[in-house]
Design a protein around this nucleic acid. Structure first.
Lengths: 263, 263
DNA sequence: CGTTGTGAACTTTTTCACAGCG
DNA sequence: CGCTGTGAAAAAGTTCACAACG
């Protein structure tokens, strides 16, 4: 099949591990809060607590950026804010477009966190002609027809997709063709993009499902009860002799596989 | 300091790796789509493509659930949908409350993906009295005063926080006190919760920042240009002799550290 | 002193590659 | 034959624990 033009190669760019990059915004937020309270320095222990990680991890993360702390003292808040901002590329201005101004798109347009951190909502785009011209968060919505022009004129390289799932790939293709190279996707679809384009996905229902998994496990301690609506087991597997887990360590207390049920 | 009551112990519940759990919803979505198209079976290769992962990973993931495939053939779509749903706990009904019915809360209330997968929006809660009674997504908003009653009467164990950052911890505390044990947090704050309570965080601006990081790296290939608004370097570090990266492999093409600049 | 920065140990996750089976 | 299921290898990420240093 050859996975064609799909997901990014997880490049670990410039030697900073992905996992570290993903935490930098967390540190930055905590640092910004400290900065606002005019706290001059902070120890790895304190900052880690504020960011919700442990201090060893934080120190290791910072070690990838360089040695910005002072032994016996801690980190200079302002200086670190700058270093992380720079590392993340937030010392420059990033114009973004939001495509799909439904409930979510509007929420995003209004979301303060965007504007505050180097991101500027350059345009709102929607396919519904009746939306065109209507201001959302003070910005007039423009029609999808003008997408390419908008991207080019504003030098947009980051696009946010908040359309229904059905429209997402098409919008994505147009964004990419017009020059966008990073996409934040809120639509519940897997987007196909050419090499060199980054996609990050935010999926509201996936997060809930992960919570449900853990929640179920907590409740699973009880013998059986509380069960109300459990949907009916489905058609049996093709033929199979459903054996669970090859090694011994199975048959946990939750049990209750719909069993074999052939034909 | 002692990290007190904070983040969960990442328990790897019932032997299924966290990383796998996080992908199950992805597979489920792809499978559901196939199911709707009445596709009877699917190979790991096809399903992996549809879910945006590689097939080895998918097969390994499934191997933690048991042996649900047929060699030489693939997986029975319906059967697998059921197995994954059950594993995730989606064969039961999960009442959730959404607290904070601003732009985002309203978007969430209207989000189809919630309702579709075993989640039922049991109540919408907001602190603004002028919202009380107003229907959002067909559900009348209730006042925060009644939070505890609502949780208890509906047997809610999952709460969604979509309030401003300032209110989040307080709301969280009340949810937890009332019996909620899983929280999906959209507010840009680190929540403190007691042992046994799960928190997942969705942070819109963090995702954008991660994109910006990669975007910057792409643009970084060019010698210098395109730079417009680069904010002024900050106060220098405490005293330090800013040495970057201990080993040789540094001084990338981006350079331009604000240098030492003492006093 | 107190706290950073980091090798080294450990854990988790991913990938490989192929035996096993329908 | 084709595709799953899985040990084993590799890679990535986390934690430990302590030397180095202001």
């Amino acid at each position: 099949m050859a996975t064609g033009r799909t997901h990014r190669p997880a490049t670990r760019s410039r030697g900073i591990p992905e996992a570290t990059v993903a935490r930098l915004p967390l540190y930055l937020r905590a640092l910004t809060a400290l900065s606002e309270r005019s706290v001059p320095t902070v120890s790895s222990e304190e900052l880690a607590a504020a960011a919700g990680v442990n201090s060893a991890k934080l120190r290791k993360d910072f070690s990838y950026l360089g040695s910005y702390g002072t032994r016996g003292v801690g980190y200079d808040v302002e200086y670190l804010v700058y270093q992380i901002s720079r590392e993340l590329g937030l010392t420059q201005d990033w114009p973004v477009v939001i495509v799909g101004i439904g409930n979510l798109g509007a929420a995003l347009a209004n979301y303060g966190g965007f504007a505050s951190r180097g991101f500027r909502v350059a345009a709102l785009i929607d396919a519904d002609p009746s939306m065109t011209g209507k201001p959302v968060a003070g910005i007039p919505v423009q029609h999808t027809d003008d997408l390419e022009t908008i991207i080019e004129e504003n030098g947009v390289s980051i696009g946010v997709i908040a359309t229904p799932a059905g429209a997402a790939q098409q919008v994505c293709d147009r964004l990419v063709a017009a020059g966008v190279t990073s996409i934040l996707n809120f639509a519940p679809t897997v987007l196909s993009v050419p090499e060199g384009v980054d996609v990050r996905k935010v999926d509201l229902s996936i997060e809930l499902q992960i919570l449900a998994f853990h929640e179920q496990r907590k409740a699973g301690e009880e013998p059986a009860g509380e069960g109300a609506a459990d949907t009916a087991p489905p058609a049996a597997p093709p033929a199979a002799s459903v054996r669970r887990r090859t090694d011994g360590t199975d048959s946990g207390p939750d049990g209750d596989v719909p069993a074999v049920m052939p034909a």
